[in-house]
């Protein structure tokens, strides 16, 4: 975290909230700082910025700051915030949108962000075949994030392997991937432009 006493010369970009509204249908500008979202969020302990701070930064248009935060990836989309926001701001949805933007702008790297690494591995799998190939997923996640190194050094890698073998014995880890039939439809889904006017979180992960 940077020096909090450093004075920020605001160059707010109010177009940011407009863009967010257009792309996701969510209106963060309605926030009146009641703090219910942060109060209720069960994962604040792992975040660098609280959900209400994320919204606040977005109001100021400081998108870059937000997109490179850990918060966006820690969010588990449990929607505790969304169900309680008095102004009906879909904060969880906002986090989703921010995840997408971070990915789209190449602002995250799997090696720096375990959460992102997993998201990416998962979605890449789906994007390719329409179904997750658990074995490949784990492998890809471990390798792309470099998590295997950490696990090797603290000894937990062996436990993971033991777990993998146990799963394999129960037929939970297929050796070969299986996909869906109409992958071209899938590709279309992934390339389709995001819906603008509805308050949904469906959007492309291009």
């Amino acid at each position: 975290m940077e020096d909090r006493a450093e004075v920020v010369f605001l160059e707010p970009d109010y177009d940011v909230t407009g863009k967010i509204r257009a792309l996701s249908g969510i209106s963060p500008e309605l926030c009146y700082q009641c703090r219910k979202c942060t109060s209720g969020c069960p994962l604040t302990f792992a975040m660098d910025y609280y959900p209400d701070q994320i919204v606040r930064y977005l109001l100021l248009g400081l998108e870059e700051k937000v997109l490179s935060s850990a918060t966006v990836w820690v969010c588990s989309a449990c929607e505790t915030c969304t169900t309680r926001c008095p102004n009906e701001i879909d904060i969880a949805g906002l986090m989703d949108y921010l995840k997408q933007q971070a990915h789209a702008r190449g602002l995250v790297r799997p090696k720096e962000n375990l959460s992102y690494a997993f998201h990416k591995a998962f979605l890449d799998d789906i994007g390719r075949r329409g179904r997750v190939f658990e074995t490949g997923l784990l492998q890809r996640y471990m390798l792309s994030s470099g998590a295997w190194k950490a696990k090797l050094s603290d000894g937990t890698l062996w436990e993971e392997i033991r777990l993998g073998l146990a799963l394999f014995r129960r037929g939970r880890l297929p050796l070969r991937p299986r996909g869906i039939r109409d992958t071209h439809e899938l590709r279309r889904l992934f390339e389709k432009a995001p819906v603008s006017s509805e308050n949904t979180t469906q959007s492309s992960a291009s």
Binding site: R35, T38, S39, G40, T44, Y50, D52, T80
Partner: peptide, 28 residues
């Protein structure tokens, strides 16, 4: 306390109520 409460939980085994919130210094 300038912080709005999102939910009310019961303290286990009692009829007392537990409130969780973020205070003005940013601490939960």
């Amino acid at each position: 306390v300038r912080s709005r409460i999102h939910s009310i939980e019961k303290a286990a085994g009692t009829e007392d109520l537990v409130l969780e919130y973020v205070d003005e210094n940013g601490a939960k």
